[in-house]
Simulated scan of single mutants.
Amino acid sequence: MTLPNWITFSRLLGIPFLLYGLYNPTPQLRWVCLGVFLVAALTDWLDGYLARKLNQISELGKFLDPLVDKLLVLAPLLVLIELGRVPAWGVFLILGRELAIAGWRVNQATITGANIWGKLKTVSQIVAIALLIAPLPQVWQMPCLVAFWVSVALTLISGAIYLLPPKSNTLNDTL
């Protein structure tokens, strides 16, 4: 297993600490959770950077990276549902998209990396979850929810882009 794949796998180690801290929501633990979440999210960039830099892009990495991303995003969102911070149906839309794309990828001949829409989706989810985890004053409640709904919208848009057939660019393909 390559170094980038180990880094991807290490993201999973932060999830139990994140979940524990979210269920014990003192302001201090919420800041710790935010730190754990952001460090785990930054490793998403780091593993991709190292895979390209070290020429260690692998089929395992292409499969493992989005799977770990999904777990890192969905685990805190499920807790945030329980804590009443986000509506379940919004998280269900995210989960539905993630399952649909995972199923779609399994049926592809080759596993492709994320496109720009998938990357925007991931960044928007990280920002939204970070804002929702942080022990911010009440005045931040609406901006946090707006960030959440923007991430839901980008999640659905990126899913539709993955599933829609590519447009043809040649005259022969349209005949």
Results as ranks from 00 to 15, higher is better:
residue 43 T to Q: 02
residue 65 D to K: 06
residue 70 K to Y: 10
residue 11 R to A: 10
residue 9 F to Y: 13
residue 3 L to F: 11
residue 70 K to W: 07
residue 7 I to H: 05
residue 165 P to Q: 08
residue 146 V to L: 10
residue 88 A to I: 11
residue 65 D to F: 12
residue 152 V to T: 09
residue 138 Q to C: 01
residue 139 V to H: 11
residue 55 N to G: 14
residue 42 L to I: 00
residue 145 L to P: 00
residue 57 I to L: 11
residue 108 Q to E: 09
residue 170 T to E: 01
residue 174 T to A: 06
residue 107 N to I: 01
residue 61 G to V: 02
residue 65 D to T: 11
residue 19 L to H: 07
residue 154 L to K: 01
residue 161 I to P: 05
residue 51 A to Q: 07
residue 37 F to V: 02
residue 57 I to G: 07
residue 83 L to Q: 13
residue 18 L to V: 08
residue 161 I to N: 08
residue 114 A to Q: 09
residue 60 L to E: 13
residue 92 F to C: 02
residue 105 R to Q: 10
residue 165 P to W: 08
residue 3 L to C: 09
residue 121 K to F: 06
residue 83 L to W: 05
residue 149 W to L: 09
residue 163 L to Q: 10
residue 140 W to Y: 12
residue 18 L to K: 02
residue 66 P to I: 13
residue 109 A to R: 14
residue 131 L to H: 10
residue 76 P to H: 03
residue 143 P to S: 01
residue 1 M to F: 14
residue 51 A to H: 04
residue 100 A to R: 08
residue 111 I to D: 06
residue 39 V to C: 06
residue 37 F to R: 01
residue 125 Q to E: 14
residue 89 W to D: 07
residue 160 A to D: 09
residue 160 A to E: 13
residue 151 S to C: 11
residue 48 G to L: 02
residue 12 L to A: 14
residue 69 D to S: 08
residue 154 L to V: 09
residue 75 A to L: 01
residue 16 P to S: 13
residue 89 W to K: 05
residue 41 A to G: 08
residue 122 T to M: 13
residue 51 A to T: 05
residue 141 Q to N: 14
residue 113 G to K: 01
residue 148 F to D: 03
residue 55 N to A: 14
residue 157 I to V: 15
residue 35 G to K: 10
residue 169 N to P: 00
residue 71 L to S: 03
residue 126 I to W: 07
residue 5 N to Y: 03
residue 45 W to P: 04
residue 31 W to P: 07
residue 13 L to G: 15
residue 54 L to A: 15
residue 60 L to M: 15
residue 26 T to A: 14
residue 89 W to V: 12
residue 114 A to S: 15
residue 70 K to F: 08
residue 112 T to N: 15
residue 104 W to C: 09
residue 71 L to Q: 01
residue 89 W to C: 01
residue 169 N to R: 04
residue 171 L to N: 00
residue 124 S to G: 06
residue 122 T to S: 11
residue 39 V to G: 03
residue 35 G to F: 12
residue 8 T to Y: 09
residue 145 L to N: 02
residue 129 I to M: 04
residue 100 A to T: 13
residue 55 N to Q: 15
residue 32 V to S: 09
residue 108 Q to A: 05
residue 77 L to S: 00
residue 165 P to V: 04
residue 115 N to A: 15
residue 91 V to W: 00
residue 88 A to G: 14
residue 43 T to V: 06
residue 46 L to H: 03
residue 40 A to S: 11
residue 172 N to D: 08
residue 35 G to D: 05
residue 111 I to G: 06
residue 17 F to R: 12
residue 36 V to R: 01
residue 60 L to R: 10
residue 46 L to F: 09
residue 134 A to N: 04
residue 159 G to K: 06
residue 69 D to C: 05
residue 44 D to V: 01
residue 134 A to L: 10
residue 111 I to W: 10
residue 83 L to M: 12
residue 26 T to N: 13
residue 106 V to Q: 13
residue 41 A to V: 03
residue 89 W to H: 11
residue 109 A to C: 05
residue 170 T to W: 00
residue 102 A to E: 15
residue 41 A to P: 00
residue 163 L to W: 12
residue 24 N to W: 14
residue 134 A to S: 11
residue 15 I to G: 01
residue 9 F to M: 15
residue 41 A to N: 02
residue 41 A to R: 02
residue 83 L to Y: 08
residue 93 L to D: 01
residue 10 S to M: 13
residue 152 V to M: 07
residue 81 I to S: 04
residue 127 V to R: 05
residue 64 L to W: 12
residue 92 F to D: 00
residue 124 S to W: 06
